[in-house]
């Protein structure tokens, strides 16, 4: 999910104490989502699962960060990953929560290329657990009342926050792309359009839209390219959905996000090489 950027983490604190630092917005948003959802709809089977995911993510981040870089890492990233895993995963067992949180955080230290990690941590962790443990794990899907009120709260809160961190256009691009492709899916499969568009009214998508597709650590640099990547994510999701893949958006982002980064890195390297030659 959206991580606090390194620049923001290292940057100066705001001078006005009343002005909330952008670093705290994503953790605050996801915490408020969790509290709202659980207190109103009881989406969690128990706090112990979410707690286990948060503690595991936090402990892994602290241990790996300290040992690898010799200093304590900023904790908000691990908190967001842990809480995301705790909200998204559905399992009667405890081990998926711990293992998913561990894999998500560890991926940042292992799956790196030219100094950058490639995957959104929780996107990778959740996708791996869903793919490798289908008998025991599923994803948050329907546990949110099928009513619009909590969605409106999340839409408003989420929009304000991604606007403040300057990434609203990514959420908007994804939503527009999804709606466009839902027409195509309805036409191809013959299902009513309202059924094709129904998933985006569910809770899983709100987390995906506001936290995953907006992750600055794993998106390319130019704004137009970021929008293109998000559009491609929605397109790959369309292909997966036409093949009846239930967790299509997560797998789509898992494929497309790192691929886009690798392409960008390859282009950067080629451009640098050409500049060296030209010099």
């Amino acid at each position: 999910m959206t991580e606090v950027t390194g620049a923001a983490a290292a940057g100066p604190l705001p001078k006005q104490w009343l002005r909330l630092d952008n670093r705290f917005l994503p953790p605050l948003l996801i915490t408020s989502i969790l509290l709202t959802a659980h207190l109103s709809f009881g989406i969690l089977e128990g706090w112990e699962r979410t707690g286990l995911a948060i503690v595991t993510a936090f402990a892994t981040e602290m241990a790996l960060g300290r040992i690898t870089y010799g200093k304590w890492p900023y904790a908000a990233s691990a908190y967001i990953t842990g809480i995301s895993v705790g909200i998204l995963l559905r399992s009667p067992f405890l081990w998926p929560y711990a293992l998913c949180a561990f894999i998500s955080i560890a991926s940042k230290y292992v799956l790196r290329f030219r100094g950058r990690h490639l995957w959104n941590p929780s996107n990778l962790g959740v996708s791996l657990v869903l793919f490798l443990a289908p008998d025991t794990v599923s994803l948050l899907s329907v546990q949110w009342g099928n009513v619009v009120a909590p969605m409106v709260v999340i839409w408003l809160l989420g929009s304000v926050i991604v606007w403040r961190v300057g990434r609203f256009y990514l959420s908007a691009t994804y939503v527009a792309s999804f709606l466009l492709f839902s027409f195509i899916r309805a036409a191809v499969t013959g299902v009513p359009w309202v059924a094709a568009v129904a998933p985006i009214t569910g809770p899983m998508y709100q987390l995906f839209i506001f936290f995953m597709v907006t992750d600055p650590k794993v998106t390319v640099r130019p704004m137009w390219a970021q929008c293109l990547v998000v559009f491609i994510v929605a397109f790959v999701e369309l292909i997966l959905r036409l093949n009846e893949v239930v967790y299509a958006p997560f797998y789509a982002l898992c494929f497309v996000g790192p691929s886009a980064l690798l392409v960008e890195m390859w282009r950067d390297a080629r451009r640098a090489k050409m500049q060296v030659r030209a010099a």
Binding site: S141, N146, V191, A195, A198, P199, T201, G202, E244
Partner: peptide, 16 residues
């Protein structure tokens, strides 16, 4: 039918 069910089941109450 599971895929189609997973799509409709998450929808807003006016849809489901």
């Amino acid at each position: 039918y599971w895929y189609d069910f997973s799509v409709i089941a998450v929808g807003h109450s006016s849809i489901i």
